[in-house]
Computed example of a mutant assay.
Amino acid sequence: MKAYIFPGQGSQFIGMGKDIYSNSSIAKKLFKYADEILGFNMTKIMLEGSIKIMNNTKYTQLAIFIYSVIKSKILTNFDPDMVAGHSLGEISALTAINVLSFEDGLRLVNKRGSIMQDICTSYSGGMLAIFGLQDSIVEKICKKDPGIVVPSNYNSPEQIVISGEIHALMRVSNLIKQLKGSKILTLPINGAFHSPIMEYGKKKLTKVINKINFKYSRCPIYQNINASPVIQSLEIKHNLIEQLTSPVKWKQSIINMINHGAVKFFEIGPKNILQGLLKNILKNYLI
């Protein structure tokens, strides 16, 4: 069975999309259509803008979504048995399999990015990637801290991401540095995504999502919040809303997809970030 996976933030770069824009008339039309829907030239930002603008959450999410969805639309053999998307990538996956129309998916990402960017501006938060420790150890350290700091991405057996208030992250980081074999990487993100800090935006996102028509899925989507296959539109909507403040259960999703028959994984994005996580998951769980 074939599984298609869609990345979230982190795989963006200036010039992304130039290859498909130049070589496909369908892609070029969709890029221009995206600009019309948004009311500004997102294509120019992607192809020749500044990295400072591109790294703004609002534009990053749009760029990854536009590239991933257009890439799926121009593939001649896109026929997934199952799909999954990492954070933002969940909306890309839903649009690729026509649960969402291109127009609705784009407008949803635009609103989602704006909501999250507003929270980033109002609340001081960040994210740390932690390597070399078991999930349970990181979870225990976070739970003991008096501030807001939680696991936000279960990416692979060797990598877990935590999100939270800056001071809470510093305290947790100092404790983790004392543990043998651990390594910490500060992510270039000025927000605490998938944490309680995002709660402020959940009501706004709920209003946006409830106005959108979600169709019945042509194949199961393994959603971040529960790592389980979902087809029903109401459940997909609910999970997409809850994802904003809940951890991304990525490694659990991949393991479940494999257990349910996936033997080939295709990443639809500008880089191969998810392929790296996939290799690590396979190395640790499928010996």
Rank of each mutant, 00 (worst) to 15 (best):
L75H: 01
S253W: 03
K2E: 13
P157I: 04
A93K: 12
L75V: 09
I20A: 04
H260I: 00
N213R: 11
P157L: 00
M82L: 07
L133E: 00
K202T: 15
P146M: 02
K215Y: 01
I137H: 02
S182E: 03
Y216V: 14
L38T: 11
H86M: 08
N239A: 11
T95P: 04
I162F: 02
P146C: 02
I268G: 12
I37M: 06
Y285N: 15
G10F: 01
G113A: 02
N56V: 05
N110W: 02
S163C: 05
P220F: 01
Q275N: 14
N239D: 15
T43M: 09
E103R: 08
S72Y: 00
E103V: 06
L282E: 09
K237T: 06
D118W: 00
T43P: 14
G85F: 05
N110Y: 06
P7F: 02
E158V: 11
F102P: 11
L274G: 15
L62N: 10
Q243I: 03
I119T: 04
G147V: 02
Y4C: 09
R112I: 09
K177Q: 07
Y4D: 13
M1C: 14
S156F: 03
N110F: 01
Q117R: 04
N41G: 09
F13S: 12
G85H: 10
K264P: 06
W250L: 09
N153H: 06
K271M: 08
G276F: 00
V150S: 09
G39C: 04
L88Q: 10
Q275V: 14
K58C: 06
N259E: 12
S68P: 15
N210I: 03
T206W: 03
K52M: 07
V208H: 08
N110D: 14
L75G: 10
K18T: 09
K204F: 12
A3P: 08
I66V: 13
R171L: 01
L128C: 13
E139S: 12
I209T: 12
T245A: 10
E48H: 12
S173P: 11
A96P: 07
G39H: 05
S25M: 07
H260F: 04
I74D: 14
Y67E: 13
Y285C: 14
I225D: 03
G132D: 05
L286A: 07
I45W: 01
A27E: 05
L277C: 10
K271H: 09
L244I: 15
I130A: 02
E158D: 11
